[in-house]
Amino acid sequence: MQSALSLLGLGSSCSVLLVLDGAEERKTAVIYSPTSHKRVDELPLFGETETVSGKVVISVREGKSLQHMGIRIEFIGAVEMLYDRESSQEFTSLVRELEDPGILTGTKQYPFAFTQVEKAYDTYNGVNVRLRYFLRVTVERPPYIPNIVKEYDMAVAHFQEEPQVNNTIRMEVGIEDSLHIEFEYKKSKLHLSDVVLGKVYFLQVRIKIKRMELEIKRRESAGTGVHAVNETDTLAKFEIMDGSPVRGESIPVRMFLSAYPSLTPTYKNINNKFSVKYFLNLVLVDEDDRRYFKQHEIFLWRAATNGN
């Protein structure tokens, strides 16, 4: 994969092309909008200690020259607080100097490598916070002339082994003398291509149920103290029953998580900046459109074996 970036300097023009080693064979990660959940980007994917290397190609228009005070490339990992830019923070910052001050003419290539660079967290694109990794190429210009700067994003994913303990979820829900149900989910920890399996058992039904749904909700918590913000969003809604059940009826639950690609792993206190939790929300709707629900937290993880 390569990125051709056109950059204009004052008094001259140049183009910057950044080419990653092994770009054609590298896997990619799709980035989704945190609000519409639609695909917005596709980035080259890296592991947590994988080397990031390639070359920067800078070309100056024929017959032109570009005076500069040095050329450098940086590897940066940053948490961006979208609602409070002053709280954003770079947690990784490495620099490679590509050339000393001079004058550029024609085309020149600059190889670079950030060897086994640590990438401590996953890429995350949220409503109020974003965690990104990127390469920043800077052609520093003389005083009073803006620098030429361009950024090139990449994605990072951590893979995990299956948790040793994975308890079932069992709960009872009662509404006075009107409704009494038991529900069970086989697992409380699921990988991103897993299947939510379970059942709902109706012990007592004295209200007219129109339908029953299972929702997946994501709660993003960003910041701390008075600056903390929370955002809850419904990522998935799956109907598991249509029509009124009778006493003693058992309804199976089978929901494929792979149908919802905008799901991410659960994140806990990432760089002391944000957390992401997921919940299964069982919803019953009666004939008067009143909603009855019971919510339970689940843990999502990215499996090392299947790459999801």
Rank of each mutant, 00 (worst) to 15 (best):
A4I: 10
G9T: 13
G11K: 10
S13G: 14
L17V: 13
L18A: 01
D21M: 02
K27G: 13
K27Y: 03
K27R: 13
Y32V: 04
Y32R: 07
S36W: 01
H37C: 10
V40R: 08
L45D: 10
E48R: 12
E48V: 13
T49D: 14
G54P: 08
V56Y: 00
I71M: 00
I71E: 00
F75P: 02
G77L: 02
Y83T: 12
D84G: 02
Q89K: 14
F91V: 08
T92C: 09
L94V: 02
F112L: 04
F114E: 04
T115M: 03
T115L: 11
E118H: 09
A120V: 11
A120E: 13
D122F: 06
T123F: 07
T123C: 07
V129D: 10
L131D: 09
F134C: 06
L135K: 06
V139Y: 00
E140C: 00
I145A: 01
I148T: 00
M154G: 06
A155G: 13
E162F: 01
Q164M: 08
N167L: 12
I169Q: 10
V173L: 15
V173F: 15
G174V: 05
L179N: 07
E184W: 06
K187E: 15
V195D: 10
L197M: 09
L203V: 02
V205C: 12
I209N: 06
M212L: 08
R219N: 13
E220L: 04
G225P: 11
H227N: 14
A228N: 08
V229Y: 04
D233M: 02
D233P: 01
E239W: 02
V246A: 10
P252V: 05
V253L: 15
M255Q: 10
F256G: 02
S258D: 14
L263T: 06
L263D: 07
T266C: 07
T266W: 04
T266K: 04
N269W: 03
N272R: 15
V276S: 05
E287L: 04
F293E: 13
Q295F: 01
F299G: 08
W301G: 05
N306I: 03
N308S: 14
